[in-house]
């Protein structure tokens, strides 16, 4: 069987593919914005990782980009995206959904909720095929099969006839990827694509996404709360805390020269595979609820550096190459000294 060659997208690397600017949202009935002034951009052929604690708004942000926020529940009162060279208002979720079509696709956080349990794998992928002159059912099935081969599913003809529950978690995730990529999207949003998987399977899936991306020059937004995954796969990183991007920039700078106290706290909390095994530093306390969100810096209630001025909004400060951090006291080392 021939190996499917994915079509190379026409954009060259370093073209900005997607730009999200100033996205703010609150859910109906809430007193304060859940998502506040979120901006970031994705270049063709590059991977942006959005990282942050559970509930910080990673999934909501990606659903908004896809035009999939539930009508009525969410009140979007700011923000737009530029995608494929055209600008869209995030408020008009329906227009966005129609416009992005299959140029932007998403792998959802729970694979079982996005695969229909009562249809065969092959039929579900074939159903999703829209392009490549696949007009007949046979052509669509051929494309589906080629895609299963491409994502490394063993015995693909057999798998085409199986149902989702017959597959292991790793296989299901491969099917999800096949389905998301079957129409050669320019941008893939993957929401925690490996969180439910064992490390050896996770390594396989990350390799697969990397390979496919190199082949197609597709831009990828990877949502995760695992900084290990971020280090493996990210070109750029956006660190979210309580609905805001507190720090963003090239992966290398985020890991080797982090500026925001939250980023530093997050990195200090991770148990390490080398070095001494002393007591772990933590980020004390927990994320405030939407109702109790402080004014100014949202991290102030947990930040060991917080001062009065933190009750006002910190302006993003730049550290070169697009590295920004929203903290009044960045860089911390010039503002604080160790206590005696």
């Amino acid at each position: 069987m021939q190996r499917l060659k994915l079509v190379h997208s026409d954009s060259s690397p370093n073209d900005v593919l997607l730009e999200v600017s100033d996205f703010s949202l609150r859910f109906k009935g809430a007193q304060k914005d859940l998502i506040s002034h979120v901006s970031f951009s994705v270049k063709a052929g590059q991977t942006v990782c959005i990282v942050g604690e559970s509930g910080c708004g990673k999934s909501v942000t990606s659903l908004a980009m896809m035009g999939l926020l539930p009508e009525g529940a969410a009140e979007i009162h700011g923000g737009g995206i530029t995608f494929d060279g055209r600008h869209y208002d995030l408020k008009d979720q329906k227009a966005l959904r129609e416009f992005r079509g299959s140029r932007m696709t998403m792998i959802f956080q729970e694979p079982m909720t996005s695969l229909n349990p009562s249809f065969r794998i092959g039929d579900q992928i074939a159903e999703a095929v829209q392009c490549h002159g696949a007009h007949t059912a046979e052509e669509a099935r051929a494309r589906a099969l080629a895609m299963l081969v491409r994502v490394g599913i063993p015995a693909p003809e057999k798998r085409m006839r199986e149902y989702p529950h017959q597959l292991s978690g790793g296989m299901r995730q491969r099917v999800m990827i096949a389905m998301a990529l079957v129409n050669d999207p320019a941008l893939l949003i993957a929401d925690e694509p490996t969180t439910a998987l064992d490390v050896t399977i996770q390594a396989q899936i990350l390799d697969l996404i990397r390979d496919l991306q190199a082949e197609t020059n597709m831009g990828t937004i990877m949502i995760t709360h695992d900084l290990g995954v971020v280090a493996e796969i990210a070109d750029t990183v956006a660190v979210m805390y309580a609905g805001t991007v507190v720090e963003a920039g090239p992966a290398e700078q985020i890991f080797n020269d982090p500026q925001h106290p939250y980023t530093i706290g997050l990195m200090s909390s991770i148990p390490k595979l080398t070095g001494p095994r002393g007591r772990l530093a933590t980020v004390p306390g927990m994320v405030p609820t939407a109702e109790n969100m402080p004014d100014g810096c949202r991290f102030a209630t947990r930040c060991p550096f917080a001062q009065d001025i933190c009750k006002t909004d910190p302006k993003p400060q730049s550290f070169g190459n697009g590295h920004v951090a929203a903290c009044h006291f960045a860089p911390l080392d010039t503002h604080f000294e160790a206590c005696a």
Partner: peptide, 12 residues
Amino acid sequence: ALLSAIPVAEHG
């Protein structure tokens, strides 16, 4: 294999 598969939170 398990040890080598763990993603490490360090760049590069």
